Simulated scan of single mutants.
Amino acid sequence: MSKKEHIFFLLGPETGLKEEYLQTLKQDLTKTHGAIEEEHLYAFEDTFSDVLPRLQNASLFGEHTLLLIHNAERLSTQDQNLLGLYAQNPSPSSTLVILSDEIRLPQRLEKLASHHTREVFWELREDQKARMIHQTLRRSGRSIEPDAVELFLQMVSPVSSALIEEASRLAFFFPEGHTITEKNIERFLFHSREENVFTLFAHLARRDLEAALECTSALLSQAEAVHQIIGGLLWQFKRLLMVMRLLKERYGREEALREAGIRGMGFKRTMETALRNYTLEETQRAIVELVSCDEQVRLHRRELHPLIFTLTLHRIVRHPRAARPA
């Protein structure tokens, strides 16, 4: 393996394809070196100097070391300099993977990346997402109408791995040979017995914190990633905010819902509930809380994500209520 192949920069927001690349890399390392020891460094929590001796002396421990540096855009100047020094003579017994959801890194790191393997995983285009849904359903013997694809894409995370997982779950609810319609999508999202991000939003719309926390626990037990749940809630709170602003501009209620892309009786009923229970200011605050939560879960270790998310739900539901117009 050349010096260049000991250091990888994997950037961009498409975490599904990035994870596939990473899994292939791990398989290749295992074939070449046998057992590998995987370690993680989280910028703002750890420093590169803490793990540098482990990288440099990996051969003493017998196993090949794979170090993943998360949120690389947050690395301190000191860590960036140390990383540059290490890259001049990387250990043949270690592989370093620098990860970021950003498409560009600070200048020092970009200069370093130009001498090593650098891959950017862009967010999928709408036609790519639609094709992925069609292909997933076709493999299971189902098909889907164009309007249903459009609605489905509005309501699930845009990350490829989440799209495939949700499309596979959708197929399970309908018999082989079935063509999935827009009404089927609504029934799947709002009336299936499985908890999902839309049932979670329905609990939040009622300000039912206990039910929201139970739903969150169920979602996490299904191996749902917290950042995917946050993305789904953000989409719905932003739609709620859009409806509120349209109503202030004297749109009729049905017209406002239609303009905001709220389709299906189940989703409309949930939005009506949220309109009764949240003011415009509270909705804006909920969006700010979720954006902040998303940033925090990307900065901290995975085991802390449920706690960070739970505290966010508490702040959204139990924030002192704003005065309402009579």
Results as ranks from 00 to 15, higher is better:
H115F: 09
L200I: 04
E194W: 09
R269I: 03
A256Q: 10
K26N: 09
A43H: 00
Q78F: 07
Q80W: 04
E282N: 03
V97F: 02
L83H: 04
A260E: 10
T15D: 11
L304T: 06
R125P: 12
L246W: 11
K3S: 13
V156Q: 07
E249G: 13
I308N: 03
L304R: 03
I185Q: 02
L234E: 14
F173D: 07
Q222M: 11
S192F: 10
F44R: 15
Q154H: 07
T273H: 10
E73C: 02
A218L: 09
P320G: 00
K129H: 02
S221R: 11
K4A: 15
R54C: 05
T32V: 14
F267Q: 14
E176C: 10
E259W: 11
T273I: 13
F9E: 03
L137F: 02
K129N: 12
E63R: 13
I180V: 06
E20S: 12
P13F: 01
T65F: 00
F237L: 10
K248H: 14
T181L: 04
E45G: 01
T199R: 12
Q107M: 07
R298N: 15
R324T: 01
S192H: 07
L170W: 01
I133M: 09
F9S: 06
L247N: 06
E281M: 14
C215T: 08
S2H: 15
T24Y: 05
Q296P: 11
E39Y: 06
E259G: 11
G261T: 09
E19T: 15
K26S: 14
L25W: 05
F190N: 03
L153V: 08
L234V: 15
H314M: 01
S76M: 02
